[in-house]
């Protein structure tokens, strides 16, 4: 039982990562490979309104609210994932 729960949790975490990466991809003007290490501004050329676009999709997907200002220090895709995970945890 315990073991199953653990597996489910790991699967969820993987799903969240995949979901976030696919949301970022869907909101890019030009196709770029998106990895955990991709830099939002320099690699994916995301500007401030591009960031708002991604935040809106993340809010819709995960039913959370994200403050644009909290996103100011976020550099990499991995930072987005960590931020969203902690938001989801907060809201649970």
């Amino acid at each position: 039982m315990l073991c199953l729960e653990k597996i489910e949790k790991t699967e969820n975490i993987l799903n969240i990562e995949e979901k976030i990466i696919s949301i970022i991809q869907e909101n890019l003007e030009e196709k770029h490979p998106v990895t955990l290490e991709s830099d939002l501004r320099n690699d994916l050329t995301i500007d401030s309104f591009g960031t708002i676009m991604i935040l809106n999709s993340l809010e819709d997907e995960f039913g959370i609210t994200i403050d644009e200002h909290d996103f100011k220090d976020i550099v990499k895709v991995n930072d987005v994932i960590n931020h969203i995970k902690s938001k989801i945890n907060e809201s649970q």
């Binding site: 003007e29 309104f49 676009m53």
Partner: peptide, 8 residues
């Protein structure tokens, strides 16, 4: 108000 940018 709420802002939703869309792809160009």
């Amino acid at each position: 108000c709420k802002i939703k940018p869309f792809l160009h």
